[in-house]
Nucleic acid binder design. Sequence first.
RNA 1: GGGGACGUAGUUCAGUCCGGUUAGAACGCUGGCCUGUCAAGCCAGAGGUCGCGGGUUCGAGUCCCGUCGUCCCCGCCA
Length: 594
Amino acid sequence: MGDWKRTDYCGVLRAKDIGRSVVLMGWVQSNRDHGGVIFIDLRDREGIIQIVLNPQTNREIHEKASALRDEWVIAVTGRITSRSPETVNPNLPTGEIEVVADGLRILNTSKPLPFLIENDIRVDELLRLKHRYLDLRRPHMKDNIVTRHKAVSATRSYLNREGFIEVETPYLTRSTPEGARDFLVPSRLNPGEFYALPQSPQLLKQTLMISGLDRYYQIVRCFRDEDLRADRQPEFTQIDLEMSYADENDIMSVVEGILKAIFEEAKGVDIPVPFKRMKHEEAMLRYGSDKPDTRFGLELDELTEIFRDSGFQVFSGAIKKGGIVKALKLPGKAGELSRKEIDDLGETAKSLGAKGLAWIRVSGDEWQSPIIKFMSDKEKEDLQKRLGLGDGDIVFFAADTAYIVNMVLSHLRLELGERLGMIDRGRFDFLWVEDFPLLDFDHTEKRYVAMHHPFTSPKEEDLHLLDTEKGKVRSRAYDVVLNGVEIGGGSIRIFQKDIQEKLFHTIGLTAEQAREKFGFLLEALEFGAPPHGGIALGLDRIVMLITGANSIRDVIAFPKTQKGVCPLTGAPSGVEQSQLLELGLKLDVKEKDK
RNA sequence: GGGGACGUAGUUCAGUCCGGUUAGAACGCUGGCCUGUCAAGCCAGAGGUCGCGGGUUCGAGUCCCGUCGUCCCCGCCA
């Protein structure tokens, strides 16, 4: 750079700057050499501006410029001038002006790139991740990272304003039972013992309430050693908060305030508050999902009672085994699905665990269906009454356990809503789902487990059911859902020691286990714990939805692949024998697992 | 652990169903020409371990088996 000092970002210069002398630094986005005049598009974080080099103006720098290649780093001095009307580029924010160069320095060169630095490239994601520094030069990716920054910044200002105190909690903490698999960190000073990276700061933020912080928040990394998905990374970021003396409404109103601030700051969109609320039971009934996408209709119909004693064994048999029958009707869409597409949907259903997918297509007055012959006239009549089938409708049926039926039909609903263009992409539909069951029966472990986590308070009016009908106890938990994506979940916590002990007992922890794993919490609850509650919001998912990204990988600077690998750094990797020795570790990895 | 899709020039793909001459295209790259382009244009050129290993065959990018990797989903994710 020598003695040159940058005066401006390329992308922010406008007609008001005409006449100014500037020093710009950035990457060569493109170099158009006409033999005479040369045009360079110079790019930095803020955008692109055109540099003009004329052989008559300055022979020496013109020659230097003709050697430039894409992504070389250069410094340019020159004067901002207006472009003549016919050469204005309306596609560039800086298109009314250009820089007539009078100085050029080459700061660095670049090899030819593995892919173009442009927005809509179609290139293998693995290649993008291997060269993430190049991928992040693409404006969309850079914008995603900036949007994330704005979301974090808006969150901090809002919560600071509301009297929340940001507190850091340890990343090296202890492994606890329940929940996800822990990432473990061996302790050199305590051979044979391990820290665990936190799945969330749950217990410590509750402890901070007992400390009297009253309102805590943290924008914090969390770690879960489970399989990855488009919206799940082994490390992810939560907006974590906890409030003393708060009930559900207090938490919800703070969350609505945060999200309103984030959307205003990061997206320039004013979202209406308060959000709609729906009970868990209703969400499952109408959408087959505890995180329904409410941007479109296509609600499910419950048909169990109609087919309880049906001669159609596929339906009545499933019901006799305790299952249910539900339907998904697509009004007037029969013509948009070919027989092959219908069969393919059946295959999709099977891959999700269904035994099949029944359907009825209405053409005029006629019902076309492979199952219609098994139905009695009464059943057809009831079905018509319930579904109101008309010409051009098509309806899909699933009969199985409630779990399978809801999973299959909710997947199908999203798939078809998407495919048939029923989803308004510009819409942000927020929803609170509340009154979750407290407990869920785990068939593998043959015991009840906490649906949210074991510190979630039961509803007071359901407390008496804890001994008798565990599955019916509702909790004071709530999830916030945006466009069918769970972006946060929280609860009012248990703050009385005896109830907490009872909960541990209910999920099969002995008093001894409870004391060993959670002793510090149980003890703290005995020293004047205030009532409290909180929530954690998934920052990655929120930013994914704001930016319209298809996966949270696109809003994380350095994400991991589905196998948990970072293609840029090569993590995870083997370590030196000496490192293992220091930690008292010996590997026992089967050749096949390597 | 299971289901599905994909893997061929630097990149994105075609070719694979139905085996057969020298594996093509576009973009990118290199060189040349070109004084108002902005996806610059025109001419010429270079560029391939068809993911990897094995098998079938006179012959494999194409068929079979295995394996590795990437993506989506189920399980898992309090």
